[in-house]
Design a protein around this nucleic acid. Structure first.
Lengths: 228, 228
DNA sequence: GTCTATAAGCCGATAGAC
DNA sequence: GTCTATCGGCTTATAGAC
């Protein structure tokens, strides 16, 4: 009995997800959870396989090695981080660019919470597993962001805070919403940050940054001094 | 030939550091560096021993197990973090207490950079190695801090930001100065944050927090509204 | 107390049947 | 393409000489 008359061969026409793609996806998800929980060294490929409900050899069949699996997991996040930084220079108004940057970073944490935590841990330990080429791109990007902030300060669009420390603070504050699940569990009963939490996070961080970096009232009129 | 006449038995009278204490200390320092670099799982007791210039068995002789060594390394930091949080309630003026708290946290990062990085990593992964009793103390402490912030907001001493997110942002921003050495190396040539960096960090974070949490001008007079 | 030599177990990776 | 069975190396921890 063909369910509802139409779309007879639809199932074959839409290869949806080949077994190959489906398995790769399940392994990546499992790897994200496992690496986020334990870190690279402590994570076991057997546990990743169990989480994905596949035999361990499939992990190697699809990803060749534990390290390669780890990198495939991180590449999306690294790209997203680079894009979030580039946002800083998309508009010459810090009152627009800073919130956009903050929201973009929080968006990464919401979209790939596990992979982003893995990235945070990787950075914390000095990025021992990232390919040099990725490091160079991250390096160059942070350099450009610093130049941008310094230029805004020069032109009086930002208060003269230390650009390095401002950027580090933003990066740290947003990155923290990756820890959020368990830090919050330490306090309340919630186990996963929901949409409201991200809104509250964006609001708090943006408020701290915007009000903390607004030029002095006597130097320019309150908060919309932007003379362009 | 007795070197210089005086102080004949001085060397015996001052046990200074017994071999035991000296070796324990050297192992702890080496462990801090190694755990900070690699994380708990990836750190090898052999490498710790090599760094301390001692045979591996001494590590086990003095500390019984890798995990115990790890905990002995962390206990100072955990205590210091608890004390820094308690500072928040030491004075009823947020304009004094918040900077004091921020400086105390940065002070920890400067005093024990390696152990603090280890602590940060431990928190990031959900504190899988900390004894439940330590976790309870950390839990209780953050709860008290939140109550304190909420009370200030109620009384109009702070702008109505989300206390949880404020605390997380402060914690994250200060904790970052642990990453500082290598994040900064990614940008400049410096390899260790010096005194000036910590001053700049304190200044930037304090500015962001104080100006971001100051009550609205129309709700109370600028920054010294404290109606007590 | 100190150190060498070794035991015991775990885990990443693969060979090879199906 | 899928999975089982196994290898080989590495690491924690200890036994026991000095």
């Amino acid at each position: 009995m063909p369910q509802t008359a139409t779309a007879p061969t639809r199932r074959r026409q839409r290869p949806a997800l080949s077994i190959r793609d489906r398995n790769r996806q399940r392994i990546l998800i499992a790897a994200g959870e496992e690496f986020a929980d334990k870190g690279f060294a402590a994570a076991k490929t057997q546990d990743i396989a169990s989480r994905a409900d596949l035999p361990k050899s499939n992990v190697y069949y699809y990803f060749q090695s534990k390290e390669n699996l780890y990198l495939r997991l991180l590449e999306n996040v690294v790209d997203a981080v680079l894009e979030a930084s580039a946002l800083l220079r998309e508009c010459d108004d810090p009152a627009w660019a800073l919130p956009a940057h903050i929201r973009a970073r929080l968006h990464i944490a919401r979209q790939w919470p596990h992979a982003y935590k893995v990235f945070a841990s990787e950075m914390l330990h000095g990025a021992p597993h990232l390919p040099p080429e990725w490091l160079q791109r991250l390096h160059a990007e942070s350099h450009r962001s610093l130049d941008c902030l310094a230029a805004w300060i020069d032109r009086g669009l930002l208060a003269p805070v230390d650009p390095q420390h401002l950027l580090l603070s933003i990066s740290a504050a947003t990155r923290t919403y990756v820890d959020f699940d368990w830090q919050i569990a330490m306090i309340t009963g919630k186990s996963q940050p929901d949409g409201d939490d991200f809104e509250a996070a964006a609001a708090t961080i943006t408020r701290l940054v915007l009000r903390g970096t607004a030029p002095e009232p006597e130097a320019a009129s309150r908060l919309r001094p932007l003379p362009l």
